[in-house]
Simulated assay, not measured.
Amino acid sequence: MYSVTVNLERGYFEVATHGFWTLDTLGDFARELEQTVRRIRAAGRTPVSLCDLTNAMVQSQEVVAAFARMMQNPAVRSGRVAVYTSGALTKFQAVRANEDHDEFRFFTCKDEARAWLFAPQGEVGGRRLTSPQPPPPFALSEVEVHAPKQAARDSLGLRLRSG
């Protein structure tokens, strides 16, 4: 349902989501996100994140409302969040769930999202950036990847169907 790629040295993490979520999925995601943000902050960095919603599905109103409540928690927040997707409905839900968060920007291209995310403070695309300056881009070989609880679910025969 999701994966989280982390680069502690640079204070960066990338989230990729797919499928239709339940409240249990969201609870697992919230715990993973909180742990990731805590680890990055413990390394002395302000977290920045890239969210790939390319394979995400439109979610139930219950999950969207719970997600919006989760994002009120400072323990899961990043200095900057670049979200990208080509799906109009998915983007609409993401914008609505995060409309009170100035650190979010929405894109249809991953390269543009990453360029904004790693740009120095100042003007980017006509918008003033106010978050702390994030680190420069990095090589993918510097990251660790987590797909939480999937191995445990597989070992118990609880395979999730993905969309």
Score class of each variant (00 low, 15 high):
residue 140 L to Y: 09
residue 73 N to Y: 04
residue 128 R to Q: 13
residue 78 S to D: 00
residue 135 P to A: 08
residue 123 E to M: 14
residue 134 P to E: 02
residue 160 L to T: 14
residue 42 A to P: 04
residue 52 D to K: 03
residue 141 S to H: 13
residue 108 T to N: 08
residue 149 K to R: 15
residue 125 G to S: 15
residue 12 Y to F: 15
residue 118 F to G: 03
residue 79 G to L: 03
residue 149 K to I: 11
residue 161 R to Y: 13
residue 24 D to N: 12
residue 107 F to A: 02
residue 59 Q to F: 01
residue 84 Y to S: 03
residue 74 P to Q: 11
residue 142 E to C: 08
residue 32 E to I: 00
residue 6 V to S: 06
residue 29 F to R: 01
residue 73 N to V: 04
residue 3 S to T: 14
residue 21 W to A: 00
residue 135 P to Y: 04
residue 87 G to Q: 14
residue 115 A to T: 06
residue 72 Q to V: 08
residue 14 E to Y: 05
residue 33 L to P: 00
residue 115 A to F: 03
residue 147 A to H: 07
residue 52 D to A: 01
residue 34 E to P: 06
residue 55 N to H: 12
residue 155 S to C: 15
residue 99 E to I: 13
residue 56 A to V: 03
residue 83 V to F: 01
residue 151 A to H: 13
residue 73 N to F: 05
residue 50 L to V: 03
residue 110 K to E: 09
residue 56 A to H: 02
residue 36 T to K: 00
residue 27 G to H: 13
residue 160 L to W: 15
residue 97 A to M: 02
residue 97 A to L: 00
residue 64 V to W: 00
residue 154 D to R: 14
residue 38 R to D: 07
residue 27 G to P: 06
residue 62 E to Q: 09
residue 135 P to F: 04
residue 77 R to L: 03
residue 156 L to M: 14
residue 108 T to L: 05
residue 37 V to W: 00
residue 91 K to P: 03
residue 41 R to M: 05
residue 70 M to I: 06
residue 144 E to D: 12
residue 154 D to H: 15
residue 109 C to E: 13
residue 38 R to I: 03
residue 138 F to P: 08
residue 14 E to I: 01
residue 98 N to S: 15
residue 85 T to G: 01
residue 156 L to A: 15
residue 43 A to K: 12
residue 128 R to F: 11
residue 4 V to W: 05
residue 51 C to H: 00
residue 126 G to V: 10
residue 150 Q to Y: 13
residue 49 S to H: 07
residue 154 D to F: 11
residue 57 M to Y: 04
residue 31 R to S: 11
residue 146 H to V: 07
residue 162 S to Y: 09
residue 84 Y to A: 04
residue 102 D to F: 08
residue 99 E to S: 14
residue 5 T to V: 08
residue 156 L to W: 11
residue 80 R to A: 02
residue 86 S to K: 09
residue 59 Q to H: 05
residue 152 A to H: 14
residue 123 E to N: 14
residue 13 F to R: 07
residue 110 K to S: 12
residue 12 Y to P: 07
residue 97 A to K: 01
residue 61 Q to R: 12
residue 148 P to W: 05
residue 130 T to E: 02
residue 7 N to S: 14
residue 20 F to Q: 06
residue 74 P to D: 04
residue 62 E to M: 12
residue 134 P to D: 07
residue 98 N to L: 10
residue 136 P to C: 09
residue 63 V to D: 01
residue 25 T to E: 09
residue 50 L to E: 03
residue 117 L to R: 08
residue 41 R to E: 04
residue 107 F to L: 04
residue 99 E to Q: 15
residue 117 L to Y: 05
residue 97 A to P: 01
residue 160 L to C: 14
residue 90 T to Q: 09
residue 95 V to D: 06
residue 71 M to P: 01
residue 67 F to S: 10
residue 138 F to Y: 14
residue 73 N to S: 09
residue 154 D to G: 09
residue 82 A to E: 00
residue 143 V to G: 05
residue 124 V to H: 11
residue 33 L to F: 04
residue 74 P to M: 02
residue 11 G to R: 08
residue 30 A to C: 12
residue 122 G to I: 04
residue 98 N to W: 03
residue 49 S to G: 12
residue 152 A to P: 09
residue 91 K to T: 07
residue 144 E to S: 13
residue 114 R to F: 10
residue 33 L to G: 02
residue 75 A to Y: 02
residue 6 V to Y: 01
residue 31 R to Y: 09
residue 45 R to L: 10
residue 93 Q to E: 09
residue 82 A to C: 08
residue 19 G to Q: 00
residue 146 H to F: 07
residue 160 L to G: 15
residue 110 K to L: 06
residue 63 V to I: 02
residue 22 T to S: 13
residue 123 E to P: 05
